[in-house]
Amino acid sequence: MNGIKKEIKMGREAILQSIKKNKPDLLPLPQINEKAFDEDINLLEVFKNNIALVGGSIKEIETKAIDAEIKTLYPNATQIANTSAKTSLGSIKISKNTDPHSLEHIDLAIVEGELGVSENGAIWVTAYNSIVRALPFITNDLVIILEKDKICLHMLQAYSLIDKRERDFGVFISGPSKTADIEQCLVVGAHGAMSLTVLLV
């Protein structure tokens, strides 16, 4: 192991030296003029359209109607893992110590999103929301509950909104998993969730 350590050290110094020698004179970091991206649009409408565009479905409902809605949408789901306090559904207990492998046969996961981005239908979900990092990916179907006053215009705004957070793991999710690797035919449901439903409350 010692030999390897030394080699790694050499790599580091060699690389940094070489950069120092070869890099150009310092060029300024540009100021970002966010005004250039301003648009007078209906955030909610554009967000909804984009969720549809990326293959998800979206519905505006009241918090108390969530349980009934999910039951109608997923009548056959029995293995349900829920991490949201906004619904009482959930047949599987989940905690920080849950082995993600045990979630292999989950039918449905319900998590809360922290932020929606109207320009691309992406929703910010953190490890705090899903408790187990693998949950939103390994589940067959995914429901994200999002408060509708938490939608911003574009990614630059999104990053300033999530700037003050505990950084461990977070993901922007935009629609269900998909692939177009076979002849450019879009197929929804690759390795992650097969479907995504966004419930706006």
Partner: peptide
């Protein structure tokens, strides 16, 4: 696409 389906932000390893 307006963004990839998953943009995963890794900062710390899981416990």
């Amino acid at each position: 696409q307006p963004i990839t389906t998953y943009s995963s932000h890794f900062n710390k390893p899981d416990d």
